[in-house]
Design a protein around this nucleic acid. Structure first.
Lengths: 266, 266
DNA sequence: CTTTTAATGCGTAATTCTTACGCTAAGATA
DNA sequence: TATCTTAGCGTAAGAATTACGCATTAAAAG
């Protein structure tokens, strides 16, 4: 049974050679494993966070999974996130596709621990699998931190972007690439989806400052946002802090989406 | 022999099931064909052009090919372009990954015509192949139009971006996505690589106007470029046009790359 | 050979956008 | 009640963008 993978590959090769597709279709070199990884961003206590899966006490990864046949990529991203975390209906955006080779090869200990499989067989499988290049398509997502209710099994957690633990595969690179894409696409992204429903202007300002890694003048930032007309000032104020109570605001998402069409400049 | 593909898939499935990877690794649903497509942009007679392969009198596609195992994606993009067109050492940038399903399924007539294969077998192969989703990673490239010497077999040609013929697979979408990415990344892209070594400011202006689809004031555009200091004014002038001879310019690529680091705004 | 045409190259003025910062108000704390 | 800190509104200086005037020049037209 342990040679099934090799046999499958052999049959495939023979078939392809028989067909004479030697010019352009060298199938023995082209079977790939394609997976999807989701970099889900949240914002809490004035810091940007990323949602990571905790496979066991040591091993952590982004929410990842295979892509099904006939499945549109955007659907795969939603499904993978749903299957691994239960999170649904959120903003997801493709940012980059990477290929992982041996460098990212997981060992049996950290890749399938927790799953009920034969470890020796599993390691052989993984060795075969990672002789190939694995291609991973990255999507990033934006979600209100408070909407992610901690999993009862402790399967997933928020991690500060400044202190990400060791991750499986090339997940570190993916997070870095997602951040670069996030900054680049900022003009057209619904960044406000990272905020709770009601928020203060200061919270929004710090969100932007965190993502862009630069400071804004409080008064100018206020003016800037107001000219776009998508903020609804609520009668309520946020109390409890040691200063003047700031107004709470809400997003008019219809106007917000319209403004994002043209881009919002900061 | 015609069932080899199915057999290979069957063996694969049995192997995977035996391993018990049923939670996350549903291999029967996940074998993919991954290919690379290059959208190569050129600029000539004041129009943006795309390089397309002419497989036969009817069939056209972007330069495409499979990705090899263990091959970094950027290398695959260069290789595919080299193998299909002979073009080397040019600026390439990943822009998006798409999945194609039955919609883009080619028929035997238009997909492998010209290759020396058994057409009946080939069609069966293609049918099997396109029962799966094919994933295509898109890279765009920028090249000086004049550097692409027409292929003696007539295998590839420049096409105006405004009149692309019918293309195989979802190549139309890819070209559209490449254009969107090109516009979005403009600040940081070496757009000047689309121009010949010596060019007039007007040519450069029309290049930008074409890509951005908006007009610039001639005098302001001139000022804008001059402040970046990467243009070298040559003693020569371009003659032959029915007006005052404009100066020819050249790019100081060292200064140009430096300016692109910070981004050039238009 | 002279005039006309069309585009170049340099300059300035008007306008808009961005940035800097002053001042008062208000809630919590000492 | 005084103090501290941040909110909220406003103005002014400076930078960047935009609009456009005008002499110049090579080719084409007459």
């Amino acid at each position: 049974m342990r040679n099934f993978y090799a046999k499958a590959l052999l049959f495939w090769n023979i078939f392809i050679r028989e067909q004479g597709f030697e010019l352009n279709i060298k199938a023995k070199n082209t079977i790939k494993e394609v997976s999807m990884a989701c970099v889900l961003f949240g914002f809490h206590t004035y810091e940007l966070k990323v949602l990571l899966l905790q496979w066991n006490e040591n091993d952590c990864s982004l929410p990842m999974g295979r892509i099904h046949r006939m499945e549109p990529l955007a659907d795969a991203a939603s499904r993978v996130l749903m299957e691994t975390t239960g999170i649904e209906d959120i903003f997801l955006q493709q940012f980059y596709t990477v290929s992982t080779n041996q460098n990212g090869k997981p060992t049996i200990q950290n890749s399938i621990a927790g799953l009920n499989v034969d470890k020796a067989k599993g390691q052989k499988f993984l060795n075969k699998l990672f002789q190939e290049t694995m291609i991973t398509i990255g999507y990033y997502g934006l979600i209100d931190f408070e909407k992610v209710v901690p999993n009862e099994n402790g399967l997933y957690h928020w991690h500060k972007i400044s202190s990400i633990p060791d991750l499986l595969f090339d997940n570190h690179d993916l997070i870095e690439l997602a951040l670069v894409a996030l900054r680049k696409d900022l003009r057209y992204l619904p960044i406000a989806k990272l905020l709770p429903q009601k928020f203060t202007l200061r919270e929004m300002q710090i969100l932007y400052e965190t993502i862009l890694n630069r400071q804004f003048d409080r008064r100018n930032f206020h003016k800037l946002l107001m000219k776009y007309d998508f903020l609804i000032k609520l009668p309520e104020k946020k109390t409890g802090t040691a200063n003047k109570s700031p107004h709470l605001y809400q997003i008019d998402f219809e106007k917000y989406e319209a403004a994002l069409q043209d881009g919002i400049s900061y």
